[in-house]
Write a protein that binds this DNA or RNA. Structure first.
Length: 321
DNA sequence: ACGCGCTTTAGTCCTCGCCT
DNA sequence: AGGCGAGGACTAAAGCGCGT
């Protein structure tokens, strides 16, 4: 018959730790370090070499994308964060095509057959129908264009959410996937205040500007996306930065836009052209002159547009050349 | 760099024809 | 009959090319 002490040694799960102090354990790796339990994760870590000897691999932390404290507490979940930018929201499992285990050793034929079956079902589940495959293509297109335009990840997420809504509302039917993907990216940029002109978006897209504009209007109308006209001031920092103009010019350009907009000059005009003209005027007023050609290159409008808008603006401002 | 006249393009509205 | 897309007409803005 075994003694109670021996039984506890054989079955560590039932050990009553409050009654018997835990024996100090020594790290095998550095041969001398003491293993201590970390307070936050409950891991057994060597105090000298930092090796984690025991610990849980599951992160029980709160949902990181919850919006407020209470939501964070309620929405605790594990695993990788979900993302709208992937058709399966990033929750997929990748099964390697190589028939090898984690150490690179080849696996048995039984295991190989099992992995083949799992791989097949994984693919079937991942893209279960044509809609899923289209979504997969559209979202990868959105990501490609967003990367080319240096659009932040948060805006890509918004674009993907709009695309999913368009898909749910059956707005894609009869239109090209690329066209809808591009227009949702353009819409997301406008909604998030990261303005990119139709020309800029069209430059990285596989569809024409005309098609993008038409699809954008349709999607915005059908999904009731409340879109304000782009404020030309949104373009000022980016254009000024590319033209290496000072903060003073930016402030002056914004002032010109504010004053002339109040007088109704902006109505019906292209925001990029309007911003470009204000920057050109501001550069003259601040003695950091840039030519109309330089400004037009950056703003992707013609010199003529800058000239026309510039003349109207200085007239409205009461400035004499 | 800028002005000017002409051309091109985009947006909007409307009509027409096809399909269900 | 009603919905929907194609296409034409019209307007305004933007672009082009040339001269100064």
């Amino acid at each position: 018959m075994a003694s109670p002490t021996r039984q506890r040694e054989r079955d560590p799960e039932t050990t009553d730790k409050t009654q018997e102090p835990e024996r100090e354990r020594v790290c095998d790796e550095c041969d001398g370090g003491t293993l201590v339990k970390s307070e936050d994760q409950g891991e057994l870590v060597c105090d000298q070499c930092g090796l984690i000897v025991e610990g849980t691999n599951i992160d029980h932390g709160p949902e990181w994308r919850a919006f407020n404290h209470s939501e964070r507490q309620n929405k605790s979940r594990v695993g990788a964060p979900t993302t709208q930018t992937m058709h399966d929201k990033g929750l997929t499992t990748s099964i390697d095509w190589k028939n090898q285990d984690a150490y690179g050793r080849s696996i048995s034929s039984d295991k190989r057959n099992q992995m083949r079956r799992l791989r097949k079902w994984q693919e079937r589940i991942r893209t279960k129908d044509a809609g899923e495959r289209n979504l997969q293509f559209a979202l990868s297109e959105t990501d490609r264009m967003a990367s080319s335009l240096a659009i932040p990840r948060s805006v890509r997420e918004v674009a993907c959410v709009i695309y999913r809504r368009a898909l749910d509302e059956d707005l894609i039917r009869g239109r090209s996937i690329e066209g809808v993907a591009t227009s949702t990216l353009y819409a997301a940029c406008r909604m998030e205040g990261i303005p990119r002109s139709l020309e800029e978006v069209a430059a990285v897209s596989r569809v024409e500007r005309k098609e993008i504009g038409r699809t954008y209007r349709y999607v915005a109308q059908e999904l009731n996306l409340e879109m304000e006209p782009v404020n030309p001031k949104k373009y000022v920092p980016r254009f000024c930065s590319e033209l290496e103009l000072s903060e003073e010019v930016q402030v002056k350009a914004n002032e010109i836009i504010d004053t002339t907009t109040e007088k109704g000059l902006l109505s019906g005009k292209s925001p990029t052209g309007y911003a470009a003209a204000a920057i050109y005027a501001a550069s003259l007023l601040c003695n950091e002159k840039k030519t109309q050609r330089e400004v037009s290159d950056v703003a992707q409008v013609t010199e003529v547009t800058i000239r026309n808008r510039y003349q109207e603006q200085i007239e409205a401002m009461g400035i004499h050349e």
